[in-house]
Computed example of a mutant assay.
Amino acid sequence: MLVDVTAAVTASPDDVEEAAVLAEADGFDGFAAAETRHDVFTVLTLAARATTRISLQSAIAVAFARNPMSVAVLANDLQLISRGRFRLGLGSQVKPHIERRFAMPWGKPAARMEEFVAAVRAIWAAWETGDRLMFRGEFYRHTLMSDYFNPGPNRFGNPPIALAAVGDLMVRAAGRVADGLLVHPLTSADYLHGHLVPLLRGARGGDLDGFSLEMSVMVVLGADEAARREAERAVREQIAFYASTPAYRPLLEAHGWGELADRLNLLSRRQAWAEMAAAIDDDVLDAFAVVGDPAVVAAALRKRFGGVLDRISLYTPYEVDRQLVAGVTAMLSTRSG
């Protein structure tokens, strides 16, 4: 497995740049940034100019807040600036954010995303070949590309595209049109092996060669007992937050925890955050997170995901000693055997 690191969702643009430099110095294979408080393409441009080796990924850029042409341009530029190190990660977000935060249309998200990716690829192909741009779909139409706006072929090639997906329809869409799947952190090893991988194989005609499975896995690490308790509390809160969202109910239901999902959703409506975290018992914690010192965490991650995930990162929604993370990384890295 290649080992990546993801910038904190609260990081400022300067923080993201610094984190990318540290990640490269610490020997990580890739660096990712999410789109929360800042534009993900902007912060990754800073990271690209400050690094030379590490790959850079949007994890994720909100596709439906944009259109295929704007994403094609942004991704093409970042591929140039990073000299071929960019990986385009796209996600749909959810209906309330698309309609009420971005004031953009929503509907048939899996079909829309599949067409979105196809449109981006059609635009890149027009730039590369010089052929007329003629993309007509249900949601997007791109039929104009004059030379004045055509950047031509990218000398580093087009970046790979990975899709974030939870529901079966979006997973199948990723298998059909993307180069990889960004697996949601609220995913157990059993669900990954027994459900997601078969779905992808079906969508791709049984062949996953050249297709990347990538996941940020929740872990509990701490330098001492007090730090570990705080880390465990934060991870239970994060699991509860994700599990309270109706879109993630199938992940819980697959383990027989459908009632828990319903209860968490009800508690979230009441903003009973402490009660939500307390509802995450040890069985739920163990299904979605790995707990232990660096050696235990690394061994557990290899056992759960070795041979399936191509890229992995540690999801630590709490302050964590950088050396602990580096220790896990060293034991997971393909370069260390």
Rank of each mutant, 00 (worst) to 15 (best):
F305V: 01
D283W: 10
L133Q: 08
V290W: 12
A272R: 02
Q57E: 06
R229S: 11
F31H: 07
A226S: 11
D179I: 08
D262H: 09
D262N: 11
Q323K: 14
G205A: 09
D131S: 15
V325K: 04
G91Y: 03
A61L: 10
I280F: 06
Y140T: 03
W106L: 03
N154F: 09
P250V: 07
P317N: 10
G337H: 13
M1F: 10
R66N: 13
I123S: 08
L301C: 04
H38F: 11
A61R: 09
T329F: 00
R155I: 15
P250W: 06
H142Q: 05
A34Q: 00
I161M: 04
Q323V: 14
P153W: 04
V183G: 08
L266R: 15
G27L: 08
W106V: 05
N158F: 10
L309Q: 04
A226R: 07
V73C: 08
E115G: 04
L264Y: 08
A34G: 05
M331P: 01
F156H: 15
Q271Y: 06
P153M: 05
R311Q: 11
E319L: 15
F116I: 02
V219M: 09
V5L: 11
F64T: 15
V3G: 06
M134T: 00
L314T: 12
E114S: 14
D262L: 14
R204M: 14
E99M: 12
N67C: 03
Q57G: 05
M218S: 07
A299Q: 02
L301R: 05
R201N: 08
L266W: 05
F156Q: 14
T329V: 09
L199Y: 12
E35Y: 03
L22D: 09
L332K: 02
P109C: 07
D286H: 12
M215E: 03
A7S: 15
S244L: 05
G157V: 04
V284C: 07
M170W: 07
E230K: 06
E319H: 09
H184M: 04
D131H: 14
K95R: 15
G258Q: 09
S216P: 03
M170Q: 02
G205N: 08
V296N: 00
A243W: 01
E253C: 06
D77W: 02
Q57M: 13
Y140I: 00
P96D: 15
E259R: 09
A47T: 08
R302Q: 09
S333L: 06
V71K: 01
M215T: 02
G307A: 06
R136P: 02
R101N: 04
R204C: 13
D262E: 14
A111N: 05
L213K: 05
H255Q: 05
E115W: 07
N150Q: 03
D209V: 01
A326M: 12
H38V: 08
